[in-house]
């Protein structure tokens, strides 16, 4: 169930700021995006974070392995990143983006609780992780590559 509630703009804003501040990656102008970059590759890896409380849902951040390598190297200022560092970097970015988007789901004094992020298994499809939830997708073209961010959400009355 896809909705147009305007979360996409906030997700894009938060994500761009996060990539800029944490890993010195900057968004491309539309005119700088090639037709090849418009098509998302199949070999993307993903980090996943769930939230509950005022709303239930989660966020998935998908990127290519090469992008994840650049992300970790830039974040940590190192020449070469270990697998643990790559996974940690991808998890931390989705944690930050989700943590700054989740307040949109706040209901009065009730807040959202972000759970620890993890790397999705190769067989795990985002839509299968969060069935029957509203979702929005944002694609961001950065100078180091393209990422897709999906947010899934519902109200507390509905089960995840």
């Amino acid at each position: 169930m896809r909705t147009t509630t305007g979360f996409s703009d906030k997700i894009r804003e938060v994500a761009v700021e996060t990539f800029e501040m944490m890993s010195y990656m900057f968004p491309l102008e539309d005119s700088e995006v090639s037709s090849e970059q418009q098509v998302l590759p199949d070999d993307m890896v993903a980090s996943v974070v769930r939230f509950d409380g005022a709303a239930k849902g989660g966020m998935v951040l998908r990127a290519t392995p090469d992008f994840v390598t650049s992300l970790a190297v830039n974040m940590l200022g190192i020449e070469e990143a270990s697998e643990e560092q790559k996974e940690g970097a991808l998890c931390e970015i989705v944690n930050i983006i989700c943590g700054n988007v989740a307040p949109l789901f706040k209901k009065g004094e009730e807040i959202c609780y972000i759970r620890p992020p993890r790397i999705a298994g190769p067989e795990e499809r985002p839509d299968d992780l969060f069935r029957n939830l509203c979702h929005e997708s944002v694609i961001i073209h950065l100078d180091e590559g393209t990422v897709e961010i999906l947010v899934y959400y519902t109200r507390t009355e509905e089960a995840v």
Binding site: A72, M75, L76, G77, E84, Q85, G88, A89, C91, E92
Partner: peptide, 12 residues
């Protein structure tokens, strides 16, 4: 912090 990548980022 539970994430070693974040600990390293902050420490560096």
């Amino acid at each position: 912090d539970d994430c070693s990548t974040v600990r390293l980022l902050i420490s560096k």
